[in-house]
Amino acid sequence: MTPPSSPSPVFQVRAEVVANRQIGPGLYWIDLAAPEIVEHARPGHFVHLVVSDTTPESPCPVWMQYTPLLRRPFSIAEHDRARGTFSLIYRVVGGGTHILSTRRAGESLDVLGPLGQTFVPIQSGRPVVMIAGGVGIAPFFFLAQEAIQAGRARPQDMTVLFGAATASLLSGSDKFRAMGIDVSLATDDGTAGFHGFVTVLLEDLLRQNPSRCAYLYVCGPTPMMRRSAALAKEAGLLGQMSLEGIMPCGVGVCMACVVPCVRPPAGTVYERVCVSGPVFDLQEVILP
């Protein structure tokens, strides 16, 4: 008897660091080689990384190798089937991401993945908007790239709204432009694009140009996702959001990364971000 399984197999591999480079203040882009994971990865999937050095040759006791103790989850930002590599974007926000930023090409990381539920793919004839805040942009590279490469959708049917605190944190917007996708920027300090919240750009687009958006993808800080979901609801617009969580296991066993979700008729149910998400429908999650 085979166990009830998720749609794609999960692998635990030692992935070689191909490149790990700074792309903005405290902002990094890392390429990892893991052909098994790349083969099965779909837009919206995440990987769960041990950021420290756990190579068998390490002279450290096991507990010290696993310091910090827990894995860190990251959405897959890009993948390259031919090279067998995938990429992540991360911002140094604590000890774990700091250690990750010190890992060098040629070293390897313990990676679990691909994990979680994926985005509904972008389809032809249905214009979409991807709205992101900060490193929330990561999964949208993969989402757009996959749809274009598969020939399922045209770049002119996609719009990216990308906001961050300041211009130097908007790294990557040129990648979308290179794909032929229209990008609008917003910064909190006015150093690039619209001076204000990126959700204002969404509000304007939905009012002035509603035909540009038949489906909405959202990823970023909680207030930005809450506002985007509210705007979508007003406009009668369907869509999805990708969430983060404090996630010890990443595979559904520890029950820690839960969010309250609306589940009629049961009412409110705690769903695990790692297996029921990280991608959820826009209106199902009750954001804090």
Partner: peptide, 13 residues
């Protein structure tokens, strides 16, 4: 939630 927090060489749940 939150239901977990990382600590020195450990975690709270």
């Amino acid at each position: 939630p939150p239901r977990a927090a990382e600590t020195a060489a450990g975690m709270l749940n």
